[in-house]
């Protein structure tokens, strides 16, 4: 929205398509799962760890094209961004809310079993 996806080429878009379809859970975050560099990203990492859910982490601080491009790709203005089963699930607040209600655990159990 407004911001041009500087360098978010069709190739990069394809790579993201593939990444989120080949991994059940993908977290686009600031920092890495070993070293989160933002409290919101850290919260998501902790939630997945607590659920024992394996996930792929992408550090958006490492690549400006990803950082800018993913905002447009997801139609979501901030990070972290969570993808489950190839679909955008939400940001930190949505993940936390569904974790606290128990909904997330149920959903992820189903996803990991499939």
């Amino acid at each position: 929205q407004g911001e041009s996806p500087s360098g978010f080429t069709p190739e990069l878009r394809d790579a993201v398509d593939r990444l989120i379809s080949e991994n059940k859970i993908v977290l686009f975050m600031k920092g890495t799962k070993m070293f989160p560099q933002c409290g919101f990203s850290n919260t998501c990492v902790q939630i997945f760890n607590q659920l024992g859910a394996p996930f792929e982490d992408i550090n958006v601080l490492e690549d400006e094209r990803i950082r800018v491009g993913m905002k447009e790709y997801s139609q979501w203005p901030t990070f972290p961004q969570v993808y489950i089963e190839g679909e955008f699930y939400g940001g930190c607040d949505i993940l936390l809310e569904s974790f606290q209600s128990g909904e997330l655990e149920e959903y992820i159990e189903r996803v990991l079993a499939s």
Partner: peptide
Amino acid sequence: RALQRHRLINGVLAEELKEIHALSIK
């Protein structure tokens, strides 16, 4: 649902979100 509600809010604040780094919606 929550995601659509948050999207609605993000949409309204699209201009401001260029400046805002973090927007938490409870």
